[in-house]
Design a protein around this nucleic acid. Structure first.
Lengths: 218, 218
DNA sequence: TTGTTGATTTCGCAA
DNA sequence: TTGCGAAGTCAACAA
């Protein structure tokens, strides 16, 4: 990894064109050739960048970074304050917990949260327009398609609606009920779901994980 | 901006929990207090980070970064290779060109690309569920709602469908046709749109901008 | 403040 | 490889 502090202007031409006026910035060149242009604020997103695979051509006062589809990032260096390199080696990578896939795993073995006597038919139940998260039978044997989201928004309700429309054409399954399950359900999504006869269920991740939350923030 | 090269392990607890095993990494502390943990690869996205507003508490060998909602990023420093600071000042910011808003501006004055004799009623035509990008009348005087995307996906078709459903309840407008216009339209989006009687139009940005492309890459 | 939409989204999984 | 959905998405803009 190479770290350069320099006064520079930057031009990008790719899907869009973008220009950065002259200022002091941090330039990062990673081992895979990718380049990041960071200012001292904003978020984790650079002001400008080039994703790998790409190639950096260096001339005095001018860097040209070319991506494989022809996008180019042109960095004009007015004044280089520092230029250092360090070998970081390969990173062992990130371990995540608490995303949608995990919610689905937990709910699949805790169907009692949806109702008594529910049985799982299968996870990722395939349809021509994509897989239904959980396909179940409720206590009376009626088919239920369950869509699981971390945050429940209108798009998720639309998605479940498309599944239900399709599934209800199958005489072996019909009638198929719908359940929209999420850690948090936006009011507009709840309204739309209710209008369409879809039941909304709020999931408590900590309770499902069997862990007592140590504070009330999450 | 502060740049630290250090062997460290990182733990994040917030919407999810994540863990980074011990490795040599770049830590960036920006002027607003935000912290970025970068490895020597991946994309512009850090392995882990904390967005502002947040507060960094420093103890020997331990950084604790706390966000305003209570998320915490804990960085355990095993070995600090370098630790430098530099004042970059405020960045003048980015100028962009070629995003969706620009496509809309261009299409609004080039309605001939949709058909002969088309007239623009208005851009950002208001409805209770959000603005329609372009409301037009075709050569025969029929109302047409146009949804413009850079990349056309299923969500965009759903969005246009909701608009059309609403607009067709207005006897002064009905019947309202739909046009889904994008630089690139995904097959599933095209299929869904066609099923619903919505016409798909692929937009050529370079041609609309009136610029002859110098190569065929964009 | 809240909600909605776009993004050079990036990332990961599965067909 | 490609397509599609999720993201600690972030960020801009309107209500």
């Amino acid at each position: 990894m190479r770290l350069v502090i320099a006064r520079c202007s930057v031009d990008y031409v790719g899907r869009l064109t973008a220009h950065l006026p002259e200022a002091l910035r941090l330039l990062i060149v990673k081992a895979d050739g990718s380049v990041l242009v960071h200012s001292d604020g904003g978020s984790y997103k650079p002001l400008n960048w080039m994703s790998p695979p790409c190639r950096l051509t260096e001339e005095p006062g001018l860097w040209t970074v070319t991506g494989k589809s022809g996008e180019t990032l042109i960095i004009t260096l007015i004044d280089v304050v520092s230029d250092t390199s360090v070998d970081l080696g390969v990173d062992p990578g990130l371990v995540k917990d608490g995303v949608e896939a995990h919610l689905q795993e937990l709910l699949a073995v805790q169907l009692g949260r949806l109702g008594d006597g529910w049985r799982l038919v299968r996870r990722e139940y395939p349809t021509p327009i994509g897989p239904v998260d959980l396909m179940c039978r409720d206590g009376t044997g009626v088919s239920v398609a369950v869509e699981i989201k971390r945050r429940g928004e209108i798009d998720g309700v639309e998605q479940l609606t498309r599944y239900l429309e399709l599934l209800n054409r199958d005489p072996l399954l019909a009638p198929v009920q719908g359940v929209f399950a999420a850690q948090e359900i936006r009011p507009q999504a709840r309204t739309l779901a209710t209008d369409r006869g879809i039941r909304c269920v709020t999931l408590n991740y900590d309770a499902m994980r069997g862990v007592e939350p140590e504070n009330t923030l999450f």
